[in-house]
């Protein structure tokens, strides 16, 4: 794969939201920096993944790049056009799927929706018709494309929204969590289509919270946290930035005190709750050498009366990269920290 030239160049984009807060009778202005001086180049022909917890700024960045949101400062070049000065050409250069299954007219059929948005992309009528027929075949929409969208299942709406993003056959494609409500099979299909589109030469910007998906699909990923890019590179490269055998996962009933003591064990960098359901905790521990600290971890857990259901050193994943960099888990919602209005999809 040659990734010689950038097709998107982001230059120092910042975005600050001001929201009015109603607190104790007085209105206060609250400033939230959703993007802090982000610069980034995305190369022509790559699948680029944007990762990060909810509210990290992924969606804000995508909205800025799709002209839906004006950056507070900074600019970007997309497909040779300036983001602020050539908005319409920027828009014509991209296809996007942003709101998931929303963003469709429920009282129109799938075909009518595609035709409508095709017209909005200035696609001549005959070309539009052919393109829709092609997409119906490609995405296997024929069963439901002539029914009104209100009758669709959410998976069907998602696939139609995906079709909509392909209607103008743009060189650049923005996909914001496209598989989120799809079943496993449909998601796999979509990923293979994305891969094919990429082979045809489309540049794809893909956001997801599924690390495995990003790992599998993306040539390069950027991890965003609190408005900043904290890691950038091919998944393999990012993963190898932390030493192998440095991740330990523990599952069970783990009291708070145990967690606090584990962090204090020498050689442990951080311990983060990855998941918490029905009183069970999934603890991700990042350390210098798992083989060496494992006994000490077990000691602490036993002393604190923890119930251990599962404990094992793990392969490094992209999530561990995030944890290692931030000391927090991806599943933790940082919306509070960033801004409630920027709830990532």
């Amino acid at each position: 794969m040659t990734m010689s030239e950038p097709i998107i160049a982001i230059e120092n984009i910042s975005k600050t939201f001001t929201s009015k807060e109603r607190g104790k009778g007085r209105k206060r202005k609250k400033k939230v920096e959703a993007l802090k001086d982000v610069s980034l180049e995305i190369f022509d022909g790559e699948v680029f993944g944007l990762l990060g917890p909810n509210g990290a700024g992924k969606t804000t960045l995508i909205k800025c790049l799709t002209t839906l949101l004006l950056p507070t400062s900074g600019t970007a070049w997309i497909n040779g056009f300036n983001l602020q000065k050539e908005e319409n050409k920027v828009r014509a250069s991209i296809g996007c799927m942003l709101m998931g299954e929303r963003g469709l007219y429920w009282k129109l059929t799938g075909r009518e929706n595609l035709d409508y948005f095709g017209a909005l992309y200035y696609i001549p009528k005959n070309v539009r018709r052919e393109r829709i027929d092609y997409l119906v075949d490609l995405l296997e929409l024929s069963d439901f494309v002539d029914r009104t969208v209100e009758t669709y299942s959410s998976g069907q709406k998602m696939i139609l929204a995906f079709a909509k993003s392909l209607i103008n056959d743009a060189p650049i494609l923005f996909l914001d969590e496209p598989t989120v409500t799809m079943d496993v099979h449909a998601a796999r299909n979509l990923r293979s289509i994305v891969r094919n589109l990429n082979k045809e030469g489309h540049t794809i910007i893909y956001t997801t919270h599924l690390m495995a998906e990003a790992d599998e699909l993306c040539d390069r990923v950027a991890i965003i946290d609190r408005g900043e890019i904290i890691a950038l590179g091919p998944p393999s490269e990012l993963k190898s930035s932390i030493p192998q055998e440095s991740v330990v996962d523990v599952e069970g009933v783990i009291p708070e005190s145990a967690r606090n003591r584990i962090v204090e064990i020498p050689g442990i960098r951080t311990a983060v709750v990855k998941d918490e359901t029905n009183g069970k905790t999934m603890l991700g521990i990042i350390c210098d050498n798992s083989r060496r600290v494992l006994p000490k971890i077990i000691d602490v857990l036993v002393e604190e009366d923890a119930i251990i259901e599962y404990i094992s050193p793990q392969e490094v994943t992209l999530e561990d990269v995030f944890i290692a960099k931030t000391g927090r888990s991806l599943s933790i919602d940082t919306r509070e920290i960033v801004t409630p209005k920027d709830a990532g999809k």
Binding site: P6, I7, N79, G95, A170, P171
Partner: peptide, 9 residues
């Protein structure tokens, strides 16, 4: 950046 095309527009 490079300029490719405007899709079908």
């Amino acid at each position: 950046t490079v300029h490719k095309n405007l899709g079908l527009s």
